[in-house]
């Protein structure tokens, strides 16, 4: 393993110190339990939006803390969900008295830990609601799985509810808006290489030079299937077709198209893929009205990409365009 680390056991704590140093005035980072909160929290009278998940997906979630997005994020160990005491600590730092919205990605560990935290918070009289995002079309939601994973759709979800909360929307409104985003978002990802988890020291899986994994998640877990390596056209088709047919997205839809790098894919390739996806959607009469291109929900250094589509309406568009000031997303401010 070659990585810029000291002791692999300290990777998350060490990185959080660097994050704090890089964004003074914007973030307040506390250790033990680890919490990243916006520096001006709590904001009185505002719904607080709190998320969290395993580390290794940066900038998700810590890079999305700040005005117009998350009030706090709880970073777990690499690829491991945070603990209930982290969530409780985060909430106690950012509770502005208007309620708490917990944004959770649908994985067994994340759901169980946030559920435990929500029970403990409710017992303390905090008005807390939980929304669970499950946008990955690679997994069928059936009795035979833990349900669909939460992946790329988490980024627009956090942006949109964060904007509404910043503008003073109440907890019911934020919760309903989250439901709308989740219902209209679909994603799919693929990998060319596996990530190496620092405490493991070797790649999570091995792929031959002429293979790719299709339908991967963001934790270095193998995908739904291993396939022969395709060119960019083939890769975009393999991701876009299942997304389009799932919702389904149809002619006349207005969408946000989010082309995401899994960490190791350079922007040159990502823009190339994004261009293909835009052309495909134009051919189908789907109007791409907003786009996001870059590494925003990653799996350490994994090479690969994911596509996320969100069907927009005027309300979602307005909140997407609203000002945001975080380490990873900043506009209008």
């Amino acid at each position: 393993m070659k990585k810029i680390v000291n002791d692999p056991a300290d990777v998350v704590a060490d990185a959080l110190r660097g994050l704090a140093a890089a964004h003074p005035g914007l973030l307040r980072v506390t250790e033990d339990p680890a919490v990243v909160a916006r520096a001006d929290a709590p904001v009185r009278g505002k719904v607080a939006v709190v998320s969290g998940g395993g580390s290794g997906h940066e900038p998700l979630h810590t890079g999305f803390v700040g005005p117009g997005m998350l009030d706090a994020a709880c970073p777990g160990a690499v690829f491991t969900s945070p603990t209930p005491d982290q969530v409780q600590a985060a909430v106690s730092q950012v509770d502005g008295g208007a309620g708490i919205l917990l944004v959770v990605k649908n994985y067994t560990g994340d759901v169980l830990n946030f559920e435990t935290a929500a029970e403990l918070l409710a017992a303390d009289g905090v008005d807390v609601r939980t929304v669970v995002i499950d946008d990955d079309v690679a997994v069928q939601d059936s009795l035979y799985t833990a349900g669909r994973r939460g992946v790329g759709g988490t980024v627009p979800l956090e942006k949109i509810v964060g904007a509404a909360a910043e503008a003073g929307a109440d907890l019911d409104t934020c919760e309903r808006l989250a439901g709308t985003v989740i219902a209209n978002t679909r994603s799919m990802g693929m990998a060319l290489t596996a990530p190496t988890v620092p405490h493991v020291g070797e790649p999570s899986f091995t792929l031959a030079g002429d293979e790719m994994e299709v339908g991967i998640g963001i934790h270095g877990e193998p995908g739904r299937r291993r396939a022969a390596l395709a060119d960019a056209n083939g890769i975009v088709t393999a991701l876009l077709d299942p997304i389009l047919s799932d919702l389904p997205f149809t002619e006349g839809d207005r969408v946000l198209l989010f082309t995401n790098s899994m960490g190791g894919t350079p922007l040159l390739e990502l823009y190339l893929a994004h261009g293909i996806a835009e052309r495909r959607l134009a051919e189908r009469g789907i109007a791409v009205e907003r786009r996001l291109v870059g590494p925003f929900i990653t799996s350490l250094e994994m090479q690969g990409m994911s596509l996320t589509m969100l069907r927009l309406d005027d309300e979602l568009l307005r909140w997407w365009d609203a000002p945001v000031h975080t380490p990873a997303l900043r506009w209008g401010l």
């Binding site: 395993g54 777990g76 491991t80 969900s81 603990t83 994985y107 067994t108 560990g109 169980l112 435990t116």
Partner: peptide, 12 residues
């Protein structure tokens, strides 16, 4: 275990 582990195994 509940407060320190995280993941599925911690709460379970």
């Amino acid at each position: 275990l509940i407060s320190k582990v995280g993941g599925a195994a911690g709460p379970l």
